[in-house]
Every structure is written in C-alpha cells, then in structure tokens.
Design a protein around this nucleic acid. Structure first.
Lengths: 244, 244
DNA sequence: CAGTGGTCTAGACCACGCT
DNA sequence: GCGTGGTCTAGACCACTGA
C-alpha cells in the first residue's frame, strides 16, 4: 500500500489525489465504482477527514469523481469531452459530415464596410474590406450562401486568390498565419429571401438557418464577419452545452 | 451590515458567497480590489476561517476571485471568455434576455417511451417516462412549444408538481438533486407544422428553430429529451465556438 | 438503524510577500 | 516582523440513503 509522506514538500492532499488518480487510470477503480468513504481514506492514510475532503473536492471539480450525499463518492463516467461544435469553416464542416465541399464565387471585391460590419470587425465605417460571397455546395448540391466581409492588414491580396477551389481558412493560415480560434455566432430561423432562394434552389420563403458569425484569430482580433443562409432541409447544426 | 443567519437552512458559506457576489455585482468591490482577509471576514461574520475559505474557494473556482499567497484575495477581472451559451432552461434563458417567462402546460402525463426517446435516455423502449408538453411565453407572448420526455428514479412524482408557475430545472434541483450539467443539442430551421403554429400564433409553414436536446445531470446520466419549436421571428440563438 | 457525505468549529504551523 | 493565504488536525452535529 502506498503511504503518504508527512515530510515531503508535496501537500498530503496532493499526494492523496495522485494516488486516487492512479487507481482510476490503471483501472483498479472503474467508472461507477464507489470509492472508499472519507473516514476510511482518512484512517487508511492517517490523515484527517478534512484533508481527504480537500483531495476529493478537487477531483470532483476536475470531473473525475462525483459525490452523492448519503450514498458515497463514485468514479465519474469517462469524459466524452469532444465538443461536437468545433470552430470550422464550411470546407472542414462538410468534410466532417462526409460530404464533398465545393464553391461558386458570387462576388470577390473590395468595398467600404457598412456600420454593422465595421462594428463587428472593430474598424471604422467606410474602411475597405474584402467582400467574398460564395454559394457553397455539398456533393455538388446547394447547401448555403455565405456573404463574407474580411479585414486584416494586407487583406486586399486575397483578391488574387482562387477561392473557388481552396478553403479560405487554409489560405489565411498558410499565407498570412491567421488561424481562427474563436467565433461568436447568432442563429435564427428565417424565411429565405427571393434572390438567395434562387441560388439555393428552394422556394422563396422556405425556412433557412440564418447565421451571423464574427471570427477571431489566435490573438483575439476579429478578421471576418459572415452572414450565411443554410438550407433548412439539408443542414443540422449541433452544439454541446455545458453548465459551467 | 448584512449578518449571516445561523438558523437558516442555507449553509453559512452559501450566505457568505451571496454577500460577496453582491458586493462585486453592485460595484462596492471592483476588479483588482483586495477583499478583506480571511480572518477579517471570519471575525466580521462570526464564522470560522475554514468556513470563510470554503466560500472563497468556491468563488475562486467560479473565477470571481483570485488568491495570491502572502498578498491577499482579489476581485478577478471580468472574464472575457464568458461563453455566450450556457446550458439553461427556458426560464433562465428568458431571464437573461430580460423577458418574463411563463408557461401553459399542454400535457403532463406518464407514457411509454418511443424507441427514439428511449435511445436518447438510455432506457428500454416502452419504459414509462413523464411527458411534459408546454407552451412557453415571454412577456406573455408565445415564444416556443416544448415537447419534453423526462426519466429518472421517482420521476412519476413530477405529475404532482405545478409546472405552470415553476421552473422544471429548479424543481429537479430542489426536490431530486438533479442538476443539468451538459446537453447535446441539434438545431435546424423547419417549416412549422399546423398544430404547433396555432399555439405559437403564427401561420403554418412559418420558419421555426427546431431543436432536439438531450440533457445530462451532474453524474452524466441523461434525464430529459426535449423537442422544441421556437418562433423564428422572435428567437435568436447565440453560441460561442472555439477551435480547441 | 448505521453509514455516508455536508457543514462547521477553534485551533495550529507553514510559506510567502512586503516593508 | 507581520499579515497574508496554504495546509492540517480532531473533533462535532446534521441530512440523506438504504437496509
């Protein structure tokens, strides 16, 4: 039996945590098992119940254990924490769904930012931004219309890029070292406007998932504002929510 | 000065936490300020230092305070990474949007689970679940229809509860110690079916945000499967995405 | 009922940061 | 040196669970 070392500079509750983590990692204790009671652990390791509780409390916070009054302390189920929602562009999103992405560029231009876009991108209204509008297809069928406004130092060179066949995010990463790291997204169900409906090959007024996204790079700077219309009958958005 | 109530069923450290949160929310204590020392708080509120530490520890975990050995405990800077998407029920969601939530119970019954619901709740098809269908209103106007299926040991007692005037999640927490901690949500834009449209006071076929959610408690057990229809013209869903 | 975790006390000694 | 938080003890009573 592992014993705790009173003279170690490592606090007793840290040593106890390490012991418990070991028991779980090596499979001695399995998910759903009840771990020894607080008094048992205290006696076994010759520490007070308070110290045991400090160790257990930390592990509960990390999600490794869960407590139930009157019943005991249990090994928590393994964390699935692969969030369903990763920040991705259309290309990667479709790849995850096992669909072949492609694009038709509707507009690629440089124009002054509207007040709303400027606010999102933290620039002045009227500053030049790159406008990139694309029809996005999955396995050759229309999936979404994206209306993008992009702004970063040197962004006007984007106008030379081939954005029909290459992922915007891939180009930004390779040529400008800009990596999307965070995005704020607003989503609602709306009736599809006529012009967009024609591109998506649906009837005007059909339900579409209407998304506004502002995307931030690895330094927290917003570089892109996109408005998208996803066909309601073809696209399901999944998200994992947590209470913390 | 606020004093703690020894005879309240609310633990002293909870009361102390509430006091401190209040000081920060009302701006009496500001980010960067040092809060009174642990011994000071103990003397001021006539509780032991251990109890003070329990309150402070919780608040540090929530990110509201930060500690520095030898220096003191400080009000933490407001978090930038405040995820826009918290796992909440309708009641809390509306409160955050500064709208007054209310409900009309459409159905409260016990019935056998469909195959799809059973799979989500990890039970056998045909096992009894509580069916709770509600029309949800914001400031008195229809906002969403929720079709809920709930299952946990003792769930049939839910049939006695007043679910028109009380939050389901609040009741689950108070009476059964069930706390939503994680949820998986699928969302799409659909045309509203006729029956639901009548309840929402919109035309049949109007765009609605159609959501399927499975909610898990603090032990990782699924206890609820809800299908919701939110009025597209009144509800915007916000989510924060991250690349990690 | 016995056993569990939840809360709480009144101490103690230590490591750290400042002055 | 002094005040801070960090660690730890040896108790106590409570609420809850399950047999």
């Amino acid at each position: 039996m592992n014993v705790l070392d009173n003279h170690s500079p490592i606090p007793l509750y840290h040593q106890l945590k390490a012991f418990i983590e070991g028991q779980i990692e090596t499979g001695v204790w399995n998910p759903g098992d009840r771990v020894p009671s607080e008094s048992d652990l205290g006696m076994q390791f010759h520490v007070s119940r308070t110290t045991v509780r400090q160790a257990l409390g930390d592990l509960v916070n990390q999600g490794l254990l869960s407590r139930a009054q009157g019943k005991g302390t249990f090994v928590a189920p393994p964390r699935i924490q692969q969030p369903l929602t990763r920040l991705t562009g259309f290309t990667q999103d479709m790849a995850q769904r096992l669909k072949r992405p492609s694009s038709r560029v509707l507009k690629l231009d440089s124009l002054p930012a509207s007040a709303q876009v400027a606010a999102a991108l933290q620039i002045a209204a009227g500053d030049l931004v790159v406008a990139l509008d694309r029809l996005r297809l999955a396995d050759g069928a229309p999936m979404a219309v994206e209306i993008g406004r992009i702004c970063f130092p040197g962004c006007e060179e984007l106008l030379q890029e081939d954005l029909s066949n290459h992922s915007l995010y891939q180009i930004l990463g390779e040529k400008w070292n800009i990596h999307p790291s965070r995005a704020r997204q607003r989503m609602e169900a709306t009736a599809c406007p006529a012009e967009t409906a024609a591109l998506l090959e649906i009837r005007k007024g059909s339900p579409v998932l209407h998304i506004y996204r502002t995307t931030f790079d690895q330094h927290g700077r917003p570089f892109e504002q996109v408005e998208s219309f996803y066909r309601g009958d073809r696209y399901v958005f999944q998200v994992e929510l947590s209470s913390e």
